[in-house]
Design a protein around this nucleic acid. Structure first.
Lengths: 204, 204, 204, 204
DNA sequence: CATGAATGAGGATTCATTCAT
DNA sequence: GATGAATGAATCCTCATTCAT
């Protein structure tokens, strides 16, 4: 059992406050346009204080990405490794996704906007890092698809393509949902996503 | 008979050169991080020269967006208004999309990355403008879906959701394709996209 | 009892240093030609530091104008509202003026050179602001003239014209004084100014 | 009799057009802020054309100053060297001044605003040059004052101071006149200027 | 003679980051 | 640990001036 001093507790709380502020600002402006000044203001700390908790702007950004991404990853992993049929797993996958998006709209805006530039301009840690996370995330979904194929639930096509298709649909819905203000419950769209993914759009 | 002097011809060519350079740099760095200096270098012009052709950085960016977006829009409009069954139209929609992405990888990277921040931080022309284009683009696809529903080809569900699903799949495939380097022909994925969109992933 | 921390004291001192440097440079080059770089250099600060104390170049300039102008205005107001005959008031007016010019040669060079363009190209705060100050300044002198007329000391002519004439003479003397290097004491010219203003140049 | 070809005539006309445009723009913006582009636009010539008629911006400005200043100087010289009493000469001096100001409001705005910076930042021709003109101008007026003193019309005080006082009054009136829009006839103020200069403001 | 096009040399402003207190 | 203050390194944009046609 870890002993956590008051000092340590406070430290963590402050760190969290800063991350939350960063989340808001990065979502609003994107990585480049967001300024440390703004984030400090939002966090109600001095600019210099940010540097006590994070090495630099990139580190702050990355920490944010890691934390949130890991949290989603954790949930997905649970779903994927659960003892359930592929059907149920996929259903849960979608649900967890939509719930995550809904509860953290701001963060996923960041992801959506910063992701595409990742492969180019490689070299710096940031890009490399985000890319890896993303790949791992798709990999995990691919695994579920693979299992679905093996168990005869899904068509025998490249499972990566299935993973991409599913996440593509989810992301498109989410993007649209953000675009229209993110008010109505997103989770409700789950059944539609699944219906479409499983059976397609053509009338039988 | 349009009289085009050599002067005018050169002017247009230079404008085009700059746009192309901008395309490359914006795709690589995003709007904010791209610098006029870099673009000038890429275009083999002086920085000041850029300002002879475009009012400022935003104008340059917007001109780029307009031009390319309009070109895709034009092609989609042709497909949508052609005298063909919804099936064929959707097939063509996908094909045109993938072709466009393939032939202009760099540009669509820009779109993908700049779009998400558009609704936030709105106010300036740039955001407003891009947002409008995007909505118009989805609208057009929605119309095709609507027609498909009316003609009994597609399930009777909100056509906008169908439009989002289709573009979501396409974008996911494209993003992945870009991620892995954009080498293998993207167009080949068309049949898979259609199969998935029409019939879903479940084995019958 | 005002509590002034060392921090605060230093801040004010630095602000003052920058204003003084700005005074010098603006006087030498005029508002447009003066560069923030030069001012920073003169103030022995980094260029960026200037922006910690003033919003921008215009703000720096305006702050300078305000401060000095207000100081002169204050002195003139004292003179004007004193309990004294118009004769004495006018005498004091001239004296205060010449003293102010003499002790702040550089600043009044700025005024002289930036003022004329104020009415044209109006619109931005700077112009508007300087113009208002100037009008208020002439107004105050006009009031003294008005009083002189009412008390039968001055001829019954439009008091504004008298105000203009007096300041005109003063400014001409000052300009000349600056032109020849501003070395000999300017205050000595006071009696001559008064003699001329009161009795004119014609031999009796 | 000089033979003036059409070529030559046109050249001069163009030169004049440019000078006039420059007059307008310099008056509006001051030397530094005025741009060659604006002047070209106003003159309805290409920017490059300006350089066919004037070596550079400074040369254009100086040419303008010279021309106008010389014209005023010429008139003043005529007045000064006329066969008339000092009284009449001074009267004419004032009249010519006010007429000149009135007919060339824009130009004298330039003078008023650019003059003060002339003595500092010396070295470049421009400053040097304008300064000389100005001194010569005051000198000429001083000569008339000197003559007035010698003929017993004016008080025996340093004639330069008298010259400064007279021009000071005139300039103050003019500045005010410009400030209020320069509409009402300025020349009417002549008698007031003279009355004040000769007899002062005190009631007898 | 005239001009459209091009550019080098700045200049204002911003911002991540460092330090002394 | 926290912060106010300071700065170097960009970055956008402007403008006088030159040149090929």
């Amino acid at each position: 059992m870890a002993i956590v001093t008051r000092r340590e507790r406070e430290r963590r709380a402050h760190r969290r406050d800063i991350l939350e502020a960063a989340n808001k600002i990065f979502a609003r402006k994107g990585f480049v346009s967001a300024t440390m000044d703004e984030i400090a203001q939002e966090a109600e700390f001095s600019k210099a204080a940010l540097y006590l908790y994070f090495k630099n702007k990139e580190d702050l950004f990355l920490s944010l990405i890691h934390e949130k991404f890991d949290s989603l990853g954790e949930k997905l992993r649970e779903v994927a490794s659960a003892d359930a049929s592929p059907d149920v797993k996929i259903e849960n996958l979608v649900r967890v996704h939509l719930e995550a998006f809904e509860s953290d709209k701001e963060f996923f805006q960041i992801i959506a906007s910063e992701h595409p530039r990742l492969d180019v301009e490689a070299g710096d840690r940031l890009r490399q890092d985000m890319r890896e996370r993303y790949v791992k995330y798709i990999d995990m979904i691919e695994d579920v698809m693979q299992e679905g194929i093996e168990k005869g639930v899904l068509k025998d096509v490249p499972p990566r393509l299935l993973a991409l298709a599913l996440t593509g649909i989810i992301h498109a819905f989410t993007a649209q949902w953000i675009l229209i203000g993110g008010e109505e419950p997103l989770a409700e769209k789950g059944t539609f996503v699944l219906e479409l993914f499983f059976h397609g759009a053509r009338r039988k």
